[in-house]
Design a binder for these strands. Structure first.
Length: 274
DNA sequence: AACGCGCCCTGTCCGC
DNA sequence: TGCGGACAGGGCGCGT
């Protein structure tokens, strides 16, 4: 579920709420969301007494920088939520997998119905190493049209699949791939290496615009996504194509198409996207 | 090497 | 009301 804007929304809230807090305890209800090698006692031992120095985002991941060069990385999978225990809506959480107790008496809850998410602990060095397999951040200055063109030349994959591959551009998922391709006027089925320079320039701009607009709206809540206070994001109302199969295109009224490939739905306007 | 598939797991919705 | 199937913001490991 959560893509870059949802992770970014969670991170910004956590920066305010938990920066400077110390982890006093960890309770694991569903050990299967821990990374391989990591067991509940190991997690507990690693985190106890560590303070949260900074909260960052990398791709779709929530990254907590702790004292002693430790990095706590939360991948949200499809249904992962990070919710403050104080949030009134915390009562709605029916699938809490891990609870992090903090020194102010509050707690952070990781809730995940499908348990596709994961929680991992790295040293700063190992996290640095791990990040090398994640592609360029689409909101960074490094993400230029030139670079996008160069990266797509060697790929015969449909551009939608290409965008979902986190090793080239990171943070884009199925919703924002669909929305950016709509805004850029490019069909999701187009082979990456057939994207023209002009299309790549539009796609680069569209990706940044849609990601920024969604961050401003605090993310997209189709069904599961909630912020740290348990509140839905507002961007679902601003989607042009995602989850709008059969509904009229908001620019030309042509019915939006849904096609399935690589086991995932893609949505597009057959009139506006070529 | 790059690509697509199957699978991980639970919940919801829709047709019968 | 129950039941089966399709589907869901992700990503890993595998075979080709």
């Amino acid at each position: 579920m959560p893509e870059l804007p949802e992770a970014e929304t969670i991170v910004r809230d956590l920066q305010r709420k938990v920066t400077g807090r110390t982890i006093t305890g960890t309770k694991v209800m569903h050990p299967d969301i821990l990374g391989t090698q990591l067991t509940p006692p190991r997690l507990s031992r690693a985190l106890k007494g560590k303070s949260i120095q900074r909260v960052e985002r990398r791709a779709k991941k929530v990254v907590l920088r702790l004292t002693d060069e430790l990095v706590l990385v939360i991948s949200l999978g499809m249904t992962g939520r990070v919710v403050a225990s104080k949030a009134e809506r915390a009562r709605d959480l029916r699938h809490v997998a891990v609870r992090f107790d903090l020194d102010d008496g509050s707690a952070l809850l990781y809730d995940d119905a499908r348990r596709f998410g994961s929680i991992e602990v790295y040293t700063t060095e190992r996290w640095q190493q791990r990040q090398t397999s994640l592609g360029v951040e689409p909101l960074s200055d490094d993400f230029t049209a030139e670079r996008l063109v160069a990266m797509t030349r060697t790929s015969i994959s449909p551009i939608r699949n290409w965008l979902l591959d986190q090793t080239r551009v990171s943070g884009v998922g199925n919703i924002y791939a669909a929305e950016a391709l709509y805004r850029a006027g490019v069909r999701p089925t187009r082979r990456a290496n057939t994207i023209t320079r002009a299309e790549a320039a539009r796609l680069r701009d569209a990706l940044r615009e849609v990601l920024i607009a969604s961050i401003e709206a605090r993310g997209t809540s189709i069904s599961d996504y909630r912020d740290v206070d348990g509140v839905e994001g507002g961007f679902a109302a601003r989607l042009y194509v995602y989850d709008r199969a059969g509904l009229p295109c908001l620019k030309c009224t042509t019915p939006i198409k849904r096609v399935v490939f690589t086991n995932r739905s893609a949505f597009y306007c057959p009139q506006c996207q070529k």
